[in-house]
Design a protein around this nucleic acid. Structure first.
Lengths: 140, 140
DNA sequence: CTCGCTGCAAAGCTTTTGCACTAGA
DNA sequence: TCTAGTGCAAAAGCTTTGCAGCGAG
């Protein structure tokens, strides 16, 4: 919705030599209007509510392009579809295997382990890509 | 292969009231004979090499049952098929997003973070279920 | 003899792809 | 104009399911 924010992202694509289309503008707008944890299917639905002709393969293709430009990321919360969000809002996800509850924890919480993995194994971990599975307080 | 080990697992199933079938015995045997990181498809292939009539849905069903009894676990290393292994061999997986290399790290490496998550959020993390994504030393 | 297990085929679900057409620059 | 982007339909990849028959106990 915030048109200025949309333009900011669209400009990145333009600068990269991409053509600016209705579908791209619409998708970026929905991404900005979404709180978090949106599946591709939900995005398709929302975009199609405004532009019914936009096809799902187009959404997937644009999502890939946005990822390639570092604008969005996708996260696997569990066995079902991946969820997408803008790269800015970075946090980790604790997903309860019993009740499915998703708890967000600030990036700093896991900074120590990322540091350790880099130091001990030379591995730059992206602890956001896959959620952290487990059991929440209530489910034991 | 080690028939004694097979029997040990089979006995767990028997004790749980399950019927012991050729497919179960064969699958357990293959699991014991596999080093690690076996996909369902690979297991199907190996079992069928000995018992060509065993169907893939049977393998999937048995794998579920073995998981329910805590005998095997499955891990998601990336976007492709899950890999299975016996619950005993617990370690974490660092998967390079660039070259796909899988590096195993001992469970103790991440013990601190599990403790922190439990203390701060009451969350019992199973850091094995999803691999840790990132970039390995050589890929930067 | 009973009912849990299995084979088979088909479907489910998410994501990708080939191809011809459309429209952005 | 020129070709990146798109719509459509179909397929791919992994896993699940319905159903009828088989076989373990």
């Amino acid at each position: 919705m915030p048109s200025a924010a949309v333009d900011e992202i669209i400009d990145v694509l333009r600068a990269a030599g991409e053509r600016i289309t209705t579908a791209k503008r619409a998708l970026v707008s929905e991404l900005l209007g979404s709180t978090a944890h949106v599946t591709a299917e939900e995005l398709i639905e929302r975009v199609q509510k405004v532009h019914p002709d936009v096809n799902k393969s187009t959404i997937y293709r644009i999502l890939h392009s946005l990822e390639a430009h570092g604008i969005v990321e996708h996260v696997h919360l569990g066995h079902s579809a991946a969820v997408y969000h803008l790269s800015g809002k970075t946090h980790h996800h604790l997903v309860c295997e019993s009740c499915g509850r998703v708890q967000e924890v600030p990036e700093a919480t896991l900074a120590a382990i990322a540091r350790k993995l880099r130091h001990d194994f030379g591995f730059s971990a992206n602890l956001r890509h896959f959620a952290i599975s487990g059991h929440c307080e209530t489910c034991g």
